[in-house]
Design a protein around this nucleic acid. Sequence first.
RNA 1: CCCGACUUAGUCUAGCCUGGUUAGGGCAGUGGACUGUAGAUCCACGAAUCGCCGGUUCAAAUCCGGCAGUCGGGACCA
Length: 368
Amino acid sequence: MDTAEKLAYVVRSPTEEVLTEEDLRVLFDEGRAIDHYIGFEISGLIHLGTGLMAGAKIADFQKAGITCRIFLADWHAWINNKLGGDMDTIRKVAVGYFKEGMAVSVKIMGGDPDKVRYILGSELYADDPDYWATVINVSKNLTLARVRKSITIMGRQQQEDVNFAQLIYPPMQVADIFSQDLTLVHSGIDQRKAHVIAREVAPKIGRDKPVAVHHKLLLGLNQPPVWPVEKSQMRELLSQMKMSKSIPKSAVFIHDSPEEIREKLRLAFCPAGNIDFNPVLDWAQSLLFRNEGFALEVSRPAKFGGDVVYPTFESLQTAFAAGELHPMDLKKAVAEALTQLLEPARDLFAQPRHAAMLEELREIKVTR
RNA sequence: CCCGACUUAGUCUAGCCUGGUUAGGGCAGUGGACUGUAGAUCCACGAAUCGCCGGUUCAAAUCCGGCAGUCGGGACCA
């Protein structure tokens, strides 16, 4: 496989940006082993924006010959008060649930979960005697203002009150990258600030700049806080419109039942004819049509036009924009296709061992 | 360590000075109506140990004392 083909895998949807494509091209051309990572706070149930979006890119990366790893950020979750801020709970969930959930997500999107390495944050820190020196080294090259601005990577508002530990989080996230000698760091676009810091700090502390790949965020199913959305503000508002665990109706989880999937999509925000901001279309594009040969099958009563099949996202989008496809029919079709896609995750978590863990997790208070 | 301000539903907040109706409102939420979806709109509804402990009083969110938390300032700067 030549560089162009590999690049195409990296850049394809749902990738939103690569910092920088040129840097990545050089890595491919030199034939160097590329070590990828994506990190997650251990924060509760895995929704499609976490599992499938990351899984999609991991599958692409693997096809491009990149070695992938998933970083289970237990310390970060602890600092950010996830799962009640209880480290024992976080560790248990990380290994017993999160790892399994991410693995099946990778599989669903066409990747090989057995070729993914899973690293627990606390293990990395225990194994690397220089880790905390790296944190300090990174911190010495950051101002307080810069760190404060970067706390949006924790899902916090910039003006929000944070405790001091939360200010240590961004430099730690950057140190994670150097400690693992990563060449390609990956995340949703919401983590961009951390990766930009890593690229800026790298030369100052004698490290190579990692290439950063950011995928777009899956839209939440709920109505955005501002509507209608001006196209010019779309970018700024996008983080508020993303799928969120703390807004239950905005998210479908990887192990949701067919009934839950159907019901959540039924309640989804979906203005007829609108293709600029439409979570249902967005999901179809990002999660369904990326799979080779996928076609969306819509079954509807004859009085509404009868059954139709859309072989490409473009054909679907055009029909919807033209009002040829009613939102309800779209929702039903997408729910059906998603239900099929997520079957492996449902099966996995239906197994007694995993079901128990999931049940336990559902009872643990999910803190923002 | 000292001084001051603040603390009312998920959230923002009114009321406190001048004790006394069911502690009011916005946003969020829930249910319904209307739409072949959702949203918008209209109607209805649920939700608050008034930070904690004690005191005064017939009666305390309201007055007094103590404690805690948050924020701001001061002190310390060998």
